[in-house]
Amino acid sequence: MEILFAFVIGTLTASGVYLILRARTFPVVVGLTMLSYAVNLFLFATGRLVTAGQPIIGSAKSYTDPLPQALVLTAIVIGFAMTAFVVVLALRSRADTGDDHVDGQKEAFWPEPGAKPAPEETR
């Protein structure tokens, strides 16, 4: 079980890193999600892998560490909120720059010296 678990974490991390390095917003978001899955699994494993154990002392012969489960729960909630935010931000960046590259369109950000700056957006 340990080997399978480690293999899953490793694959998720590797795919996540690869996708983040793609430098397009959608792959980056998917990559971040994979990375956070890998991290969550890893955190879960820090309490050691136990099958059929309960997180309460005294209720069964063997017990499993409840703290990593609490940590994972926190990490999942935070990771989920962050993913939602970064999706919205990626859409916003796509709409603002007209391109899904993480740097946007180069021209929009490196104006020629002396060029008039883009007018500030007003609401």
């Binding site: 917003t25 956070s36 962050m82 970064v86 990626a90 960046s93 957006e121």
Partner: peptide, 18 residues
């Protein structure tokens, strides 16, 4: 808002998530 903020913002968010 504005384009000048959304792109550095995206970098900032992604880096901090990593």
């Amino acid at each position: 808002g504005g384009t000048a903020r959304s792109v550095p913002g995206l970098h900032y968010v992604v880096l901090n998530l990593i």
